[in-house]
């Protein structure tokens, strides 16, 4: 959605150009560049929206219409019936998965944000030997894809018999190197040393200073970290795939994937995968809409430093 906003000022710009006549290239875009940029963005918007549209349409059809009607337009509207079937299937295991995802993603992102915030704040505001070394190691962590860590994590969790438990997915979700990075950058820019000094003079301990004073100034960064973590954990599929065997612990991504892998032999699952996929993006949309403005502020704060 937000990708469309930059195109809005197009009209006044065009008016200006016509009164001024020839303008230096660097300052004025040619109409050709403007139009082609619009076209490119339009194409990309379509590219991203069409699959979601397809999903919505497909999820609203019953099984016999799924193959025999136009894939991009509605047939008989049985979206709610399909939802009912999905929720009833196997005693509501789908709801259990959604709840699991919410706990993994919500809880993991919340705790992960607090840890990342404290860590970044400490790296920004305290002087201690090895500070840069620690920060660089954490930065190195940004470069390692989470997928590459899944198998080593499995072997480690096997040693302590924690595989196939809630903790095997929750604990690794608490760590966010990028969050530490963002929190440090933001804290050093937005939390003045004088303020911390003042809090100390007033007798507040370090923890109290952090939670009552500094956190408030770091809110945009923390919300960004929270969003990043939430989305990352919600979409994280590989770690649960490797760790979990117990269906009641699955997040929704893994559950839907497991169903989808059996569609050929148990065709009824296809309906559930479609409607389930549609429902599973709703929490992400909600959380994005709620926190969108913080997200953008936080991103730009990180990017210019």
């Amino acid at each position: 959605m937000s990708t469309l906003t930059p195109t809005v000022p197009a009209k006044p710009a065009r008016g200006l150009r016509s009164t001024e006549g020839k303008a230096p290239r660097a300052q004025r875009e040619s109409p050709f560049a403007r139009v082609s940029a619009m076209i490119v963005m339009g194409v990309f918007t379509l590219y991203f929206l069409v699959p979601i549209w397809w999903l919505l349409v497909a999820a609203s059809k019953n099984r016999s219409q799924f193959n025999s009607t136009n894939p991009l337009w509605f047939a008989d509207f049985s979206l709610f019936e399909n939802m009912g079937n999905l929720i009833a299937y196997r005693d509501g295991v789908y709801l259990k998965w959604m709840l699991n995802s919410a706990v993994y993603a919500g809880g993991g992102a919340l705790v992960g944000t607090i840890i990342a915030g404290m860590c970044g704040y400490a790296l920004a505001k305290y002087n201690f030997p090895g500070r840069e070394l620690i920060f660089n190691v954490v930065l190195g962590g940004v470069l390692v894809p989470a997928t590459a860590l899944a198998l080593p994590l499995f072997l480690i969790f096997s040693q302590i018999s924690l595989t196939n438990t809630f903790w095997s997915v929750f604990l690794p979700s608490l760590v966010s190197p990028f969050g530490v990075y963002l929190a440090r950058i933001y804290a050093s820019a937005s939390v003045p040393d004088e303020l911390i000094e003042a809090a100390r003079l007033d007798g507040a301990g370090e923890l109290r200073t952090f939670f009552t004073v500094s956190v408030r100034m770091m809110v945009p960064a923390l919300v960004t970290v929270f969003l990043f973590q939430f989305v990352a954990i919600w979409n994280n599929f590989f770690l649960p795939l490797i760790m979990l065997r117990d269906e009641t612990l699955f997040p929704v991504t893994l559950g839907l994937y497991a169903w989808n892998s059996q569609v050929n032999q148990i065709p009824v699952l296809r309906d559930y995968v479609l409607i389930g996929a549609l429902l599973s993006i709703i929490p992400l949309i909600i959380i994005f809409l709620l926190l969108q403005r913080f997200w953008r502020n936080g991103l730009s704060a990180g990017s210019v430093k």
Binding site: L241, I242, R245, D246, E247, Y257, A258, S261, Q262
Partner: peptide, 10 residues
């Protein structure tokens, strides 16, 4: 009983 995706699926 434990479960997961089909064999080649993981």
């Amino acid at each position: 009983v434990q479960t997961g995706p089909n064999g080649n699926g993981g």
